[in-house]
Amino acid sequence: MKLAVIAYLLVCFFLPVQASTPSFEETFGLDLFDKGKNKVRLGMFSNESGDTSSWSIDFKLNKDIGIGQPSYPNKDKDQFILPTTGPVFTMDELLAIGQNDYSDLSDIQKERLFAAIDHSVDDYSVFHINLSAEGLLALDKEKNLKDFTQFRAQGTYKKWRDNQYTYGGGIFATYETDQSNDNAQIAYGVSVNAQFYFHQGKANEYVFLKLDYAQVDPTDNTQRLAILNGDKSTFHRWEMDATVQFQISVQEIDKVELSYRYFYEPGAPTEVAAAGMNNFALFTAGIFFQKGWFIAFSDGELPFSVQKEQIVELGWSHSFN
């Protein structure tokens, strides 16, 4: 119940405020690094044998707080290249474009105006604070098949290059727990990440990579303490995330997403390694349809999991920025 309340408050906090006038970056996708990172998926989660299943909410929420303003060189009119053919803009439309108002432009006008920008000089850097939450809440917490929730705060320096990729790094702290709060731990360390886009201006086709190195305080991790006879010593951990998202030429399918998450504790105590708690891995493949419906398959386990599972997910997904 405690985590359910926290999740509700987080959704309210992370939901975007709709601006009356879209910005240059929103219209032309120059801030693709942050697009589609907020996801809520409601559905039935079941293991392969079908003996454990529950209605659940799988969520991934992010909130960026920029420190300073990034610079977009192509926002200046001298960065626009006159196309050989293009839409005819009225004087009012040109004045509106100069004020970052694209609300009255047609989709074709937006596409051609975007194509008329010289993206070879796109380049900016910015420091920002990122707050995030990721996990699974099951209606029956005893049947949570991905019982690992992570709340994260991170300071990141991010660099955008050539409208094709971003990269960055920083420091972070996380609070990790299961749904019942029986197991919890704090981790803090350094992180690097990169995101590559398959097509210029398309936010939903990309490869995302993240690598963390952290020191973990397991003071409230009852699983680990039971194995180590109450030893609360901190330990080091690597965490790697990789996600690929792309579209296929099937009209009913919006996108396909593949993700892999891996945790590894180097030099783990013999008891931890013998219990299989020195490394965890989870692979997920999902197909998302036009109306938000999805089907996904997962194989593996996350920290705090009792055993490896093959999980089938069927439900409705919503992404927002």
Rank of each mutant, 00 (worst) to 15 (best):
P22H: 08
T85G: 02
G68Y: 03
L82P: 15
K2S: 06
E48T: 01
D64H: 10
Q79G: 01
A7M: 11
M44I: 05
F59S: 11
A7C: 04
G29P: 05
L82W: 03
G68F: 04
P73L: 10
F45Y: 11
I65W: 10
D76S: 15
V88T: 10
R41N: 11
L94P: 07
G29R: 12
K35E: 15
P73T: 00
Y8E: 13
V11Q: 12
F89V: 05
A4I: 09
M91V: 14
Q18Y: 12
Q69P: 00
T52V: 10
V17P: 00
L94E: 04
D31Y: 00
K75Y: 04
F24S: 09
Q79A: 14
G43P: 02
P16V: 01
K60E: 15
L9K: 05
L15P: 00
L3F: 10
P22A: 06
E93S: 01
F45V: 13
S56N: 05
F28C: 02
F59I: 02
P70N: 08
P83A: 10
L30W: 05
M91T: 14
D51H: 13
I67V: 12
G43T: 10
S56E: 03
M44Q: 06
K77G: 02
D64M: 06
D78E: 13
D64I: 03
Q79P: 00
K39R: 11
P16G: 01
D92G: 03
N74H: 07
P22L: 05
R41F: 07
V5W: 13
F24T: 12
I97F: 04
L94G: 01
A7W: 01
G68P: 10
K60I: 01
